[in-house]
């Protein structure tokens, strides 16, 4: 009985240890190269199969290949926002410093992916719709997402007091979550130029030979996100905890 209770406490202990910047720093040094490797493997497969082997679209010809950067970037822009808002909520509720550092490190990555989604979408729109930009629901809500990321980043920079900056920007991230379902469902809720969902669990709108490269590119972008997120978070940890004993005791190779 006693050992059973001990086992059920194991995940709780793991979470507790990982939420300490010192352990997180050590663990992330070990796992982040694996994400870099995952990125390279997935991107190599995704690019070769997506650019060379996937058949051309029956309407858009070879122009549809923009999907292999546009959709993964748009997908990640939403995922990263959810990660950032969740980490912010954990920071506010449980007062975990590390959660704030993770959230802060998410923002520039999310902003970059949002920018990629907007720019490649615009480039894709020109030959297919005949215009670089329309103020429709999907495009406008994605642009608002970019402003949310930029607002989050500047709020963190503008506050002198770092604790105040943490909680203020956390609130902004949490309130902005409203925008996520709006972006996701915008193509169903409003009449829009933007095409409907490509990826679906129930009725995929895409042939397997086109789908696999897309999934690989999503995997690649996700690994890239995790890799850079861990690097940024480690830098943030060192910056904030430089006065701590464990940082002073760090070995050259740690």
């Amino acid at each position: 009985m006693r050992s059973f209770v001990g086992w059920t406490l194991l995940p709780q202990r793991a979470v507790h240890q990982l939420s300490s910047p010192k352990y997180f720093y050590a663990v992330s040094r070990i796992i982040s190269p694996w994400f870099a490797l995952g990125f390279l493997v997935c991107a190599t497969y995704g690019l070769i199969s997506g650019l060379l082997f996937a058949p051309p679209d029956y309407q858009q010809g070879h122009g549809f290949r923009i999907i292999y950067v546009h959709v993964p970037a748009a997908f990640l822009s939403l995922i990263i926002y959810v990660v950032m808002a969740s980490a912010s909520a954990v920071g506010l509720i449980f007062r975990v410093k590390l959660a704030y550092m993770l959230a802060k490190s998410c923002a520039p990555l999310g902003a970059s992916f949002t920018l990629i989604a907007l720019v490649t979408g615009s480039i894709w729109g020109k030959p297919m719709w005949g215009t670089w930009w329309v103020w429709d629901a999907r495009l406008t809500s994605e642009l608002i997402l970019l402003f949310l990321y930029l607002g989050y980043m500047s709020l963190g920079l503008s506050c002198e007091d770092s604790k105040k900056a943490d909680s203020l920007s956390a609130w902004l991230a949490i309130i902005g979550v409203i925008n996520i379902p709006i972006i996701h469902f915008s193509v169903n809720w409003w009449y829009t130029l933007h095409q409907g969902t490509t990826l679906s669990l129930t009725k995929p709108a895409i042939a397997p030979s086109m789908l696999w490269p897309l999934l690989a590119m999503i995997g690649a972008f996700f690994c890239y996100f995790m890799w850079v997120l861990l690097i940024r978070t480690r830098t943030e940890i060192l910056t904030r905890e430089r006065q701590c004993q464990w940082v002073k005791g760090l070995g050259i190779r740690d």
Partner: peptide, 10 residues
């Protein structure tokens, strides 16, 4: 297939 500029710039 004529979309080179769009695909490669993306």
């Amino acid at each position: 297939g004529g979309y080179g500029a769009y695909v490669w710039s993306s």
